[in-house]
Nucleic acid binder design. Structure first.
Lengths: 342, 342
DNA sequence: AGTATATTCCAAAACGTTTTGGGAGTCAAA
DNA sequence: TTTGACTCCCAAAACGTTTTGGAATATACT
């Protein structure tokens, strides 16, 4: 059907070898035949068959990304932005991006193993790391290229990009106290997620440094959804002595908490402070605009992707392990009045 | 490095052919050798090389999806849910999903053409169709398999799934009028998007049927982001005679409009009604909860994917063109008090 | 003239599969 | 004993590339 290199060779009256070498700029082919080959290939609409090229070069030029989804209504703006960051960078380098969606667990691991064993990808981007991360253990065990977004507990002898969310949450705690909110609660995700630990630790440190503390009764665990944040915030607000500040560990849960506070008729930013983490685009446009910790998700995606490609190509990485300093974004949900930075 | 079928063949003392046929359940191989082959293959950890298989079978077992992104901060919850729908269904059928992200235009078309010409995918999911859709023209022109989410203007001789958003917006218009809001505005996306036409047409029809109309000054065009909705709503609310209802053509823009109304101190659902379209998970948890038109995004993704796979495999489609009836989700942003459906 | 050196080319192997088109052996029926 | 059917097997071709390891010719230098 399609035009193959053999067809081109026949047409120019040269061997397949010569055509291939002409097209790849080898210098053992005369200027004359090179231009002829190029012309004919162009005319015939020759496009190399990627599969054949990849088989021969023993490389897939493909990156793998397994998105950890929870339930069908997977709808985390965080991931679409991260995906765009990876995807665009991958395209720049001529790599394909193979995406699959699996909830953490057996099927997820199966997706990784299958991709590795049947040689579908050259490397992985591992996202949302966990305390003891089976994906990373596996990939490290077989020495398969990957770069993680996030760290793990224990040995950190693999390449990653992470934000210093411990520091971010420390700043956030201090900000909350400074704004005059003293009964402070936190909604954290399942503690198996690595960033949960960092954010919670940082939050505790920040409170301690500002002379406060996080009481056990004010610590709630939830999934990372709005619904989860809503439910846990409702529990908190129904207590005898409800908190006057709720720090959620991501923006989505903060949105849920805001809704709960609204329903209780609380003036957010005055009677209660609510904070998030991530600074997804929506947080600026929420009512009220959300105080949160900025995470340059798109850039991180690009960075991770670039590191992975270098890794695959055996190029040395100038920085194997990147930790970014976060910055606070202060908005009305903690009582800060601002003309929003546009 | 990795175990090939040749290694297995050598080990069992049979030909490569026999091993291949044993592993694929052909009946011209004895029960004895079959079990032996299976055992040895298992022991040696043999996994067929996908690339080689695909080259030989002249198929890629891969679906293409090019997400139309606008700018780096691409963060549309709509797409992550749609992606999950496609991804999970593709996995069920053993297909890979190749994702790239490109803004509409030249680079986008290049992504399609490259994937087709270098034979990287067996078919495409085309999302967010446009009036005169170059992607569809191209794919149809070369008779390449695809299924669209959405229709186009003109001939509809290709497989698609779409929601009858015309009907949805008709219902919405009537609901708004019924709730007693009469100065009605609309924020629509660039008219090149096909669903913009349907939604706007439907909205006009609904208003007409309820004895109203959409004045030109109350029609604003925007991108599909929150920021856009916010800006256009501000323009509307700054008019001498501002509208008392704003129907946005997606939830994200509605969120932006809500923020604008909040900032004007308007009581949403009472002094002004605001509506969206899509019913992304967040719309239930917004403040106030958003009246919108439900679109089963995850299911549509799965449906489109399944249709595409059938198409690729040459199986007849029971339904080539699917149009789903939408349903209104009434919430507080139009003054409806509900115990939310959980 | 003979030898080295460029220059230009290509046959064949390789990547790892699946499929094609038989072949050899056994057994029962003619 | 031949014939036909059946069972089990396999060499070789094919998929479409790239790379290896020369070969052939022309040119330049002793």
């Amino acid at each position: 059907m399609a035009v193959t290199i053999k067809d081109v060779a026949q047409r120019v009256g040269k061997s397949v070898t010569t055509v291939s070498r002409a097209l790849h700029g080898y210098d053992d082919v005369s200027e004359e035949t090179r231009t002829l080959v190029e012309k004919v290939a162009e005319e015939m609409g020759y496009r190399p068959n990627t599969l054949a090229q990849r088989l021969q070069k023993r490389t897939t030029d493909t990156l793998g990304l397994v998105l950890p989804t929870f339930g069908p209504r997977f709808s985390d703006p965080f991931f679409s932005e991260f995906l765009a960051g990876i995807g665009n960078k991958a395209a720049d380098f001529g790599y394909d991006l193979l995406v699959s969606t699996q909830p953490p667990g057996e099927r997820e691991m199966h997706a990784y193993k299958q991709a590795v064993e049947s040689r579908r990808v050259d490397g992985f981007v591992v996202v949302r790391t966990r305390m003891n991360d089976e994906r990373i253990n596996y990939l490290r065990g077989i020495d398969f290229p990957f770069v993680a977004f996030g760290r793990t507990h224990g040995e950190l002898d693999f390449p990653f990009v992470d934000e210093d969310s411990q520091h971010g949450m420390r700043l956030m705690a201090q900000h909350i106290i400074q704004q005059g909110f003293h009964r402070v609660a936190c909604i954290a995700p399942e503690p198996d997620l690595m960033f949960a630990k960092y954010r919670l630790d940082g939050f505790r440190e920040g409170l301690a440094e500002a002379g406060g503390s996080l009481e056990d009764r004010y610590l709630k665990y939830s999934d990372l959804t709005q619904r989860g944040g809503y439910e846990k915030a409702n529990e908190l607000l129904a207590m005898d002595e409800p908190p006057t500040a709720i720090a959620a560990c991501n923006d989505l849960m903060a949105f849920g908490a805001i809704r709960a506070a609204h329903e209780q008729g609380l003036a957010i930013g005055e009677e209660i402070a609510i904070t998030g983490f991530d600074d997804i685009p929506m947080s600026e446009h929420f009512h009220p605009p959300l105080t949160t910790v900025n995470q340059p998700i798109y850039e991180i995606g690009g960075r991770v992707c670039e590191m992975l490609i270098h890794h695959i190509q055996g190029k040395p990485l100038e920085e194997e392990q990147v930790i970014l300093k976060p910055s606070l974004v202060l908005r009305e949900s903690t009582g800060v009045e601002t003309e929003e930075d546009i």
